[in-house]
Amino acid sequence: MARLYADEQFPRLVSELLRTMGHDVLTVQEAGNDNLGIPDEEVLAFAIRDNRAVITLNRQDFICLHRANSEHLGIVVCTNDTDRNRMAIRINEALVSEESLKGKLIRVVRLAS
């Protein structure tokens, strides 16, 4: 399963649901006060140092970071879904379909109702 680093705005409940699905999720809040409010570049750098892929709702900025340099352990950009369980299931499906996240940008979009 994936080792993920959830950025500051990523829904905590989704992180917890992903854990129940077998993923190792560390949140910015759990990583400590030094990680709160840091720029996206530093979020990605921390994830790389901790051998994790970033998971985020901040699609635009992290897509730009990926395009600037794909030397990372994966970036998972998601559209928000108020149905947190459905959101976690879609993310899990995207993650398990990949053999490796290294250098990849994974897009998880909310399906139209």
Rank of each mutant, 00 (worst) to 15 (best):
D34Q: 15
T79S: 15
D61N: 09
L4Y: 02
D24M: 07
E41P: 00
L4W: 00
A45C: 02
N80L: 15
R107Y: 11
T27L: 09
S113H: 09
M87N: 04
R84D: 05
E42L: 13
A31R: 09
L13K: 09
R12I: 02
L17W: 00
E93I: 05
R67D: 14
Q60P: 01
H66P: 09
Y5G: 08
V28Q: 12
T20N: 07
N51Y: 07
V108F: 01
N92A: 11
E8D: 12
E71H: 14
N85W: 07
L57H: 01
N80P: 01
N80V: 10
R49A: 15
R86T: 01
R12A: 09
T20R: 13
D83H: 12
I75F: 05
V14R: 09
Q29G: 05
I55V: 13
V25C: 03
K102S: 10
T56I: 03
E8R: 07
N35G: 00
A2T: 05
C64T: 14
H66Q: 14
R3N: 14
D40R: 09
P39K: 15
L111T: 15
V54E: 04
E16K: 07
N80T: 05
V109I: 05
A94T: 00
E93Q: 13
G32K: 08
R84N: 11
I48G: 09
N85E: 12
A47Q: 09
E8V: 06
G22Q: 14
G22K: 13
A68L: 12
R3K: 15
N69C: 12
R107F: 12
A47L: 07
E8T: 07
L57E: 01
R67M: 10
G32H: 09
D81L: 11
A6K: 01
E42F: 10
M21I: 01
V25S: 01
N58Q: 10
D40E: 14
L13T: 00
V108M: 02
H72F: 04
A53T: 02
I75A: 03
T20V: 04
V77P: 13
A94M: 06
G22R: 12
I63T: 15
D24S: 15
T79A: 09
A2F: 00
L26I: 12
R86Y: 02
L44W: 05
L18A: 06
D7V: 02
D24I: 04
S97R: 14
L13N: 03
R110N: 12
L57V: 00
V25P: 03
G37T: 10
M21C: 04
G37C: 08
R90A: 15
Q29S: 11
T27P: 03
R59N: 08
L36S: 05
N92L: 06
S100W: 06
N33L: 08
L44V: 09
H72W: 01
V77E: 02
E16M: 04
F46I: 04
G37D: 10
A112R: 13
Q60I: 04
E41K: 10
L4F: 03
L26M: 15
V96Q: 13
H66F: 05
V14A: 12
N92K: 08
R52L: 08
Q29T: 08
L36W: 05
N35K: 10
R12S: 04
S15G: 09
F10D: 02
L36C: 02
I75K: 07
I89R: 13
E71I: 01
T79Q: 14
S100I: 11
A88D: 03
